[in-house]
C-alpha cells in the first residue's frame, strides 16, 4: 500500500516517529477533540492519517520550513504529481500556512498534503521548482496572494495580479 510506504518514507523526517504517531492517532477517532486540541496548542510537526471519506485526503504532513525541500523530494521519488500549492493566513496565530497537495496517477490512491507554517511578518520558504517544474506558477500565485517569498524561485513576479501589484489580497488584513 502506497499510503504505508509514503508514511514510512516521510517518518524519517521526524526524530521520534513513535511518539508523534501515537499521539496523532489517539486524536484521530474524534474530529471534535482534534479541533479542540488545535485551538489550545498549535499542531506539532508530524504525520496524521486522515479519514479519506471525510477530508478527501489520506496523509496530512506538517513539516518545518527547513524540512520542506527534503519532504517534497521524498514525495517526488515516490512518483506523486503536484496538484497545487496554496496558502492560508492564520492571522490570530500570526502565522502563515502553505499547503502543498500531491496525488498519484495510478490506482493506488493516496493524496498527500504537506503543510508548513511560517512567520507572518517575514514569510519566506525555499522554492520547490527544482523538483517540480510545475510548482513555478503555483508558487508565483501564492506569492501574489499572500506575499510569501519563495527563495530561489527563478521568476517570482506577479502572475495573476497586475505586473505592478504590491498588495496581497488574500491576507486577512487586506483592505481593498
Amino acid at each position: 500500500m502506497i499510503v504505508e510506504k509514503t508514511r514510512k518514507a516521510l517518518e524519517a523526517l521526524f526524530p521520534q516517529p513513535e511518539q508523534e504517531e501515537s499521539s496523532a492517532e489517539k486524536i484521530e477517532p474524534s474530529e471534535q477533540e482534534e479541533a479542540e486540541q488545535k485551538e489550545e496548542t498549535p499542531r506539532q510537526n508530524g504525520i496524521i492519517e486522515r479519514d479519506y471519506s471525510v477530508h478527501g485526503y489520506h496523509l496530512d504532513v506538517q513539516v518545518d520550513p527547513a524540512q520542506l525541500y527534503v519532504a517534497v523530494k521524498i514525495i517526488d521519488e515516490l512518483d506523486y504529481f503536484i496538484e497545487s500549492i496554496t496558502g492560508v493566513d492564520w492571522i490570530k496565530e500570526n502565522q502563515m500556512e502553505v499547503i502543498y497537495d500531491f496525488s498519484r496517477y495510478d490506482f493506488d490512491l493516496c493524496r498527500v498534503v504537506i503543510r508548513t507554517r511560517i512567520d507572518r511578518e517575514d514569510p519566506k520558504l525555499p522554492t520547490i521548482t527544482p523538483i517540480y517544474a510545475g510548482a513555478n506558477w503555483h508558487e508565483r500565485e501564492t506569492h501574489d496572494f499572500f506575499g510569501i517569498k519563495f527563495e530561489g524561485h527563478p521568476h517570482l513576479i506577479p502572475l495573476l495580479l497586475p505586473e505592478d501589484a504590491d498588495f496581497h489580497p488574500l491576507l486577512k488584513d487586506f483592505k481593498a
Binding site: D79, Y80, F81, I82, E83, S84, R104, Y105, D106, F107, L109, Y132, A133, G134
Partner: peptide
C-alpha cells in the same frame, strides 16, 4: 514525466499514456 512534474490531467495526461481519470481513480 513532464505530465507528472506539471500535474497535467484530462486528455493531456491520457494522451501521454497515463491512465488517470478522477472518476475512476477516486
Amino acid at each position: 514525466e513532464t505530465c507528472r512534474k506539471y500535474g497535467a490531467s484530462s486528455a493531456v495526461a491520457r494522451g501521454s499514456g497515463i491512465n488517470y481519470d478522477v472518476r475512476r481513480n477516486e
